[in-house]
Amino acid sequence: MEGIGGGGASVASPLPQWGHDAWRMYQYYLDKSTPHSTYRWIGTLVVAAVYCLRVYYAQGFYIVSYGLGIYLLNLLIGFLSPLVDPELEGSDGPVLPTKGSDEFKPFIRRLPEFKFWYSMTKAFCIAFLMTFFSVFDVPVFWPILLCYWVVLFVLTMRRQIGHMIKYKYIPFNIGKQKYTGKKASASSSRVRGD
């Protein structure tokens, strides 16, 4: 009965502790990367380029690429969609203004930028790992998959853009004013004697 009550030394397996430490370190670096969106997206573009090169040189894994494309399209729809859809209108939270007299409510994404980036990067990494297993290399005629994906992309984006035009929202910060800070006025500089 030495292991009960803390009187004796209990021997714990080092594997769960190592896994916990590795997860904490991973989470630490993930949290530190949050404010550096430009570098995060550059890293994702590098991962995507490595994946594309792997598929090109392997001359296969088109089903994996098609599945990845469908998943990325689904993420893009979530990224471009508002948190509360104005078509459903039975919400208690903030909604987008539909008329000029409506109160302004800021655009809140259904899928935030960080989660969009994280899910996209994980998807490319998982798809890259799948290219090392021949069970995922299903022989298909890839031009048909590509044409089907392009048609699906065009129809989905046309619907999404129509929704954006109908409810007058822009999911990007391009052209919006940003607060630059307090500027010193000429009268305050004269008072200080500058």
Score class of each variant (00 low, 15 high):
residue 180 T to S: 12
residue 79 F to R: 15
residue 122 K to P: 00
residue 67 G to Q: 05
residue 192 R to I: 14
residue 70 I to M: 08
residue 142 W to S: 12
residue 147 C to T: 07
residue 40 R to A: 03
residue 23 W to S: 09
residue 16 P to L: 13
residue 7 G to A: 07
residue 30 L to D: 13
residue 38 T to I: 05
residue 124 F to N: 09
residue 59 Q to S: 15
residue 36 H to E: 02
residue 188 S to V: 09
residue 75 L to R: 07
residue 33 S to Y: 04
residue 1 M to S: 13
residue 70 I to A: 10
residue 126 I to W: 03
residue 184 A to I: 07
residue 16 P to Q: 11
residue 150 V to I: 15
residue 172 F to H: 09
residue 15 L to Q: 11
residue 99 K to M: 06
residue 53 L to V: 10
residue 107 F to H: 00
residue 117 W to D: 05
residue 152 L to T: 09
residue 159 R to I: 11
residue 179 Y to R: 01
residue 10 S to F: 14
residue 134 S to M: 07
residue 117 W to G: 04
residue 4 I to Q: 09
residue 27 Q to N: 14
residue 136 F to H: 04
residue 64 V to G: 02
residue 118 Y to T: 08
residue 108 I to G: 00
residue 179 Y to V: 06
residue 73 L to W: 00
residue 56 Y to D: 04
residue 1 M to H: 12
residue 35 P to V: 08
residue 63 I to E: 06
residue 167 Y to K: 04
residue 18 W to S: 08
residue 32 K to E: 12
residue 104 F to N: 08
residue 176 K to Q: 04
residue 135 V to W: 14
residue 161 I to H: 13
residue 86 P to C: 01
residue 29 Y to K: 10
residue 30 L to P: 00
residue 64 V to H: 02
residue 92 D to L: 15
residue 89 E to P: 03
residue 183 K to C: 10
residue 69 G to H: 07
residue 106 P to S: 09
residue 104 F to G: 03
residue 68 L to T: 01
residue 26 Y to Q: 05
residue 89 E to T: 11
residue 136 F to K: 07
residue 7 G to T: 06
residue 44 T to C: 04
residue 44 T to Y: 03
residue 56 Y to C: 11
residue 2 E to C: 10
residue 71 Y to W: 03
residue 74 N to P: 00
residue 72 L to K: 04
residue 150 V to F: 03
residue 75 L to Q: 12
residue 79 F to T: 11
